[in-house]
Amino acid sequence: GKELVLALYDYQEKSPREVTMKKGDILTLLNSTNKDWWKVEVNDRQGFVPAAYVKKLDP
């Protein structure tokens, strides 16, 4: 199944490769191989958020 992450903080995108999220958002995790930036999908948009700003949810 899909892996989900919880947004721990608000994040405002600073480049087109990033996405904005609000604290409490549930996002689909697409790629977590980079320790600093994780690729997520939110509202049909894909992009990166700081890994420290999200937490993996237990399945």
Rank of each mutant, 00 (worst) to 15 (best):
7 A>D: 00
7 A>P: 00
24 G>C: 03
45 R>K: 15
14 K>S: 14
53 Y>V: 09
35 K>V: 09
46 Q>M: 10
17 R>H: 09
12 Q>W: 08
5 V>D: 00
28 T>Y: 06
50 P>G: 00
24 G>I: 00
35 K>T: 10
59 P>F: 06
57 L>Q: 10
18 E>A: 06
49 V>S: 02
48 F>H: 06
33 T>Y: 06
53 Y>F: 15
27 L>G: 14
26 I>M: 10
19 V>D: 00
35 K>R: 09
58 D>H: 13
43 N>G: 15
31 N>L: 08
25 D>W: 09
22 K>F: 12
23 K>D: 02
50 P>S: 01
31 N>D: 15
25 D>Y: 03
53 Y>M: 15
13 E>F: 04
2 K>P: 04
56 K>H: 13
20 T>E: 04
12 Q>S: 10
26 I>Q: 12
2 K>C: 08
21 M>T: 04
9 Y>F: 09
44 D>R: 14
39 K>A: 13
34 N>Q: 10
4 L>M: 14
29 L>R: 02
40 V>Q: 01
43 N>K: 10
49 V>I: 08
45 R>D: 04
56 K>M: 14
9 Y>A: 15
22 K>G: 06
10 D>M: 00
55 K>S: 10
12 Q>P: 06
47 G>Q: 02
15 S>F: 05
23 K>C: 06
2 K>V: 04
38 W>Y: 07
10 D>V: 00
20 T>W: 03
38 W>P: 02
26 I>C: 13
9 Y>M: 13
27 L>E: 00
15 S>P: 03
42 V>G: 12
5 V>E: 01
5 V>F: 07
28 T>I: 07
17 R>F: 06
55 K>G: 08
39 K>E: 15
45 R>P: 00
49 V>G: 02
59 P>A: 09
26 I>A: 05
12 Q>K: 09
54 V>E: 00
53 Y>E: 02
1 G>V: 15
56 K>E: 10
41 E>C: 11
2 K>A: 11
13 E>W: 04
29 L>E: 02
41 E>L: 10
46 Q>Y: 05
8 L>F: 03
38 W>E: 02
37 W>H: 04
46 Q>C: 12
18 E>L: 03
12 Q>Y: 10
47 G>M: 05
43 N>C: 07
55 K>L: 04
21 M>D: 01
12 Q>V: 12
56 K>R: 13
35 K>L: 07
43 N>I: 06
10 D>L: 00
51 A>T: 09
33 T>E: 12
50 P>T: 00
36 D>A: 12
27 L>D: 01
34 N>K: 10
46 Q>D: 08
23 K>P: 03
23 K>Q: 12
39 K>F: 11
53 Y>S: 15
41 E>N: 06
5 V>M: 06
34 N>L: 09
8 L>V: 08
37 W>Q: 10
3 E>R: 09
23 K>F: 02
42 V>T: 14
41 E>Q: 14
32 S>Q: 07
43 N>R: 14
4 L>S: 13
51 A>G: 05
31 N>S: 15
38 W>M: 08
43 N>M: 13
5 V>K: 01
20 T>G: 12
25 D>C: 10
17 R>P: 07
36 D>S: 10
38 W>S: 04
49 V>R: 00
44 D>N: 14
18 E>Y: 04
46 Q>T: 13
18 E>I: 02
9 Y>T: 14
41 E>F: 06
29 L>D: 01
14 K>M: 07
29 L>A: 04
21 M>E: 00
13 E>K: 15
18 E>Q: 09
56 K>P: 12
51 A>F: 01
43 N>D: 10
